[in-house]
Simulated scan of single mutants.
Amino acid sequence: MERFTKAVRAAIAQQNWYGALALALTLPDICGRLEDPSVKSKPRYKRWWDKYVAIRYTCPYVDEVAVRSLLSSGDAKGLRDHIFHQQATRPLLSSNDAYALRCAYLHQGGDVIEGQRVRDMVNRFHVITPPQSGSCHSNMFKILNPEGADSTLEVQVDRLCNDICDGVEKWEVEVKGNAEVKARMGSLMVIHDSSGGVFF
């Protein structure tokens, strides 16, 4: 798998954003198939994403209805407990939305996922290159239009690709002793160097 993560990171270094993103979005599929080829693409992709990448796209969630109720009741202690001690989280980029992005980009070249059956919260992605200073990653925007609100998730292409590569590296450590996965890795494509001639 190292050749694939190196290729993603080389594409990032070369600012080949489209190539980096295409390969990065396939890596959860590849890892999932190596681990369990009997599972279909969508469920294995989602399971792998949830285990190795989702944590980087999960944020604390405060229930607005509960906050309004506590505010109107004047329960300051209850409000404080709810805000500071609640354990609820919400994904900014769920495994469903990640899989929908994979499908939209790899099969259609697009970033709009509202037509994807599997999607959760995001209607489209706004993928950006790294800013000259700082970072601008994982920002959710609600855009109002006559049909309702569209949710757009802004992601910084290098960070998304590196997060997926980091997940692959973590996965590799976990499956290192799995003889079946290791055997299946032998079927992965190798691009052979032909500079010294072509050999089979």
Rank of each mutant, 00 (worst) to 15 (best):
L160T: 05
L153H: 00
F141Q: 09
F141P: 00
L144F: 09
V157S: 06
E154Q: 15
D158Y: 02
C161Y: 04
F141V: 11
G148C: 10
S133V: 09
E154A: 03
C136G: 02
I143Y: 08
R159T: 11
C165I: 15
F141Y: 10
I164E: 00
I164Q: 03
M140A: 11
G134Q: 02
I143H: 11
F141E: 11
G134L: 00
E169D: 15
E147H: 10
D163L: 08
L160A: 07
P146I: 14
D158H: 09
G167R: 00
S133D: 05
D166G: 06
T152N: 01
C165V: 15
S151L: 04
C161T: 05
T152S: 05
V157F: 10
S138G: 09
M140E: 12
I164T: 05
Q156R: 02
N162S: 10
V168Q: 05
G167I: 01
I143Q: 09
C136R: 12
S135V: 13
E147R: 10
N139T: 07
C165R: 10
S151E: 12
G134F: 01
R159W: 03
G167S: 02
I164Y: 02
H137N: 15
E147K: 14
Q156H: 04
V155R: 00
N139S: 06
V168E: 00
H137V: 03
